[in-house]
Design a protein around this nucleic acid. Structure first.
Lengths: 167, 167
DNA sequence: TGCAAATAGTTAGGTAGCTAACTATAGTGA
DNA sequence: TCACTATAGTTAGCTACCTAACTATTTGCA
């Protein structure tokens, strides 16, 4: 996602609105602000994870594995839960395996499958990263009042139900 | 950004909260929902732009050029305004130039610089894409009441002022 | 039973992002 | 003036995403 350092000021938006009649300046600003702020926060999260030699993709795979009893899953299941293609998951697992944070094993029941297991080193990496991650998220979201936090959640869910407007 | 198809349910978050004491379940859910919904909307926007042989990065460069009088800028300036590295901008401009949506010219004043100009074909591409983009954004944001829209904007700006919490 | 369809995973090739290192040019100060 | 520093842009090599095409295996049904 593009970061959009400079959101358009209202003057520029008006120039566009003159050429493109359907533009609703306030609504466009809100839409771009949502993408912009989320990208900022996502980049911030990546900076934090990067300081522990992780990035969001790999970090999320470790979390999905920790959610499982035994810390075992399959590439397909992980891809579906992370919302990425199986091809992308292959690449993420290659990196995690190289760093010995997960292992690949052949599944005895179905020889098409590969079982992915969180290693001790992988669990240790999560134990290193998660406490501070939770502290920072708590600190960030605490800048909102409880009412604001609830309102944000409600409004976001409402928008997410209409993301297919772009299809 | 990772899409997080399945946000954690409260049961799983509790398992994590037991191991990592500082976790605040509600706040983490709100944070992840923000990233998740913004990613969904960003992907939707990319699907729409993709149907016109554009993606967010290239589309945004065209918009930045149209903001300029004469439709002229430089790679450095575009990179700064788009919030990407100059290396990334080189790649975006390579693609746009290949599709003849922009042209590169040597700057007469400073021979280190390259001037980037929006072509007629580039402006035509914007004229093809923007009206429907504005219609769809208007339609999407109209699912919120005016009060909800204002509250969203306010809360997002508040959060963006604390994105450095991850540093 | 045996072959077609479905599924699991990988590979190949594309876009979009990054940092670090490089070249060319411009500016500056002893 | 001339060497140092700063700036503009590109290249190289990395991560992470995609789709399409491929291999191996399993499933299902005629």
């Amino acid at each position: 996602m593009l970061e959009l350092k400079n959101l358009p000021d209202e003057h520029i938006l008006k120039k566009f609105a003159d050429r493109y009649e359907d533009a609703d300046i306030q609504k466009v600003l809100r839409f771009l602000t949502l993408l912009h702020v989320a990208t900022d926060l996502s980049n911030g999260l990546d900076r934090y994870l990067g300081s522990h030699a992780l990035l969001q993709g790999r970090w999320w795979v470790l979390i999905l594995l920790m959610r499982e009893d035994e810390g075992i899953s399959t590439p397909s299941s992980l891809a579906e839960k992370a919302g990425v293609s199986r091809a992308t998951m292959t690449g993420l697992l290659d990196g995690l395996q190289r760093d010995k944070l997960v292992t690949r094993m052949v599944a005895p029941k179905d020889r098409r499958q590969t079982l992915i297991k969180l290693t001790g080193k992988g669990q240790a990496k999560l134990d290193e990263v998660m406490p501070d991650y939770y502290r920072r998220v708590k600190q960030l979201m605490a800048v909102l009042t409880e009412e604001e936090g609830q309102a944000l959640q409600k409004v976001l869910l409402k928008l997410s139900q209409h993301a297919e407007i772009f299809d």
